[in-house]
């Protein structure tokens, strides 16, 4: 028998018996960030491609949600901070090696950009909209000219933001479950899939819906591929990583992960979308909501399970 115990100290429930410092705020923040990244990515992509009118929901309408999501996400992050009054310290330092830091700075860039993007389209939805002040109108006029530049910035930062939501975790070598380079692409994919789902819900154009259902299917395929590879990677690695994988393969997170994330969040919506593409009548909102739910659960489960995984020594 091998016995390893803490004789004393370490009775702090935030750290022991396993890490418990991140609760709902961080996963929500990661989900909203990923979702906003997905939305802004498609908006920028199709604008740059010149498909603004083909996919109007994706380019013009859904982005209005992005700033709201980002603000809520930031609020969640703020809630998580234990030394809130010192929040501003995030913006007096640039720490390139700290994912937290470049996440904060990424948001610093993309949040205003998303505001601007929404502002540039606001009159299309509210024809009577009036900016009231002349200088704002001037600014708008100016920005309209540089829409393409803005779109490029938005595209790049959306990808960074999407990847960041994964890297924030995967940078932690201390938590074997998080410490896989697949987490960045996986969270990016999950964010894109969620972004596509929002367009699916909001779009009234069959063509656009079909497009986004196809996109979603492809992304789900990629996600499944990444997940399988992630587990193969873990299982072929050291004991700590095997232990980490086992959290999902018989361990406490098995049911939650496979049912909520993989079956309800990926396989079922994929099946429904295939059926819809095959002209079965399925309300588009059903698979889309499942995708959103799966994407949210993915974050919650990974943040929680990751805190349970640790090095043995």
């Amino acid at each position: 028998m091998k016995e390893e115990i803490f004789v004393s100290g370490r009775m702090n429930h935030l750290v022991d018996p396993h890490l418990n410092i991140w609760h709902w705020e961080i996963p929500l923040y990661l989900f909203l960030g990923g979702l906003a990244a997905g939305i802004l990515f498609f908006a920028a992509l199709y604008f740059i491609n010149g498909k603004e009118d083909q996919y109007p929901t994706a380019v013009k309408r859904t982005p209005i949600l992005a700033p709201i999501l980002l603000i809520i996400g930031l609020l969640a992050l703020f809630f998580d901070l234990r030394h809130k009054l010192y929040f501003w310290q995030l913006y007096t330092h640039i720490k390139l090696q700290s994912p937290m830091s470049w996440g904060a700075w990424t948001l610093m860039v993309i949040t205003p950009v998303s505001f601007i993007w929404s502002a540039l389209y606001i009159r299309e939805f509210f024809p009577n909209w009036d900016w009231k002040y002349n200088w704002i109108k001037e600014v708008e006029k100016f920005l309209q000219q540089y829409k393409k530049v803005i779109a490029w910035i938005m595209l790049i930062y959306a990808v960074i933001l999407g990847i960041y939501t994964g890297i924030l975790l995967s940078a932690f070598n201390a938590r074997p479950l998080w410490n896989t380079s697949i987490l960045g692409p996986l969270f990016l994919a999950s964010g894109l899939s969620a972004g596509a789902a929002v367009t699916l819900i909001m779009s009234k154009s069959p063509e656009e819906r079909k497009r986004f259902a196809q996109i979603d299917l492809i992304i789900i395929g990629i996600e499944l591929f990444l997940i399988i590879h992630m587990f193969m990677g873990f299982l072929a690695s050291t004991q700590v990583q095997i232990d980490a994988a086992n959290l999902f393969l018989g361990g406490p997170y098995t049911m939650a992960f496979w049912i909520f994330v993989v079956i309800l969040g990926m396989l079922l919506p994929a099946a429904l979308e295939i059926m819809e593409l095959r002209k079965f009548h399925i309300p588009a909102i059903v698979p889309a909501i499942l995708v959103l739910f799966g994407s949210l659960m993915l974050r919650f489960i990974f943040v929680n399970a990751g805190q349970m995984s640790r090095w043995l020594y």
């Binding site: 700290s98 201390a174 805190q307």
Partner: peptide, 9 residues
Amino acid sequence: IGCGACIAS
């Protein structure tokens, strides 16, 4: 700021 990143790391 109490973000907890260092604790997790």
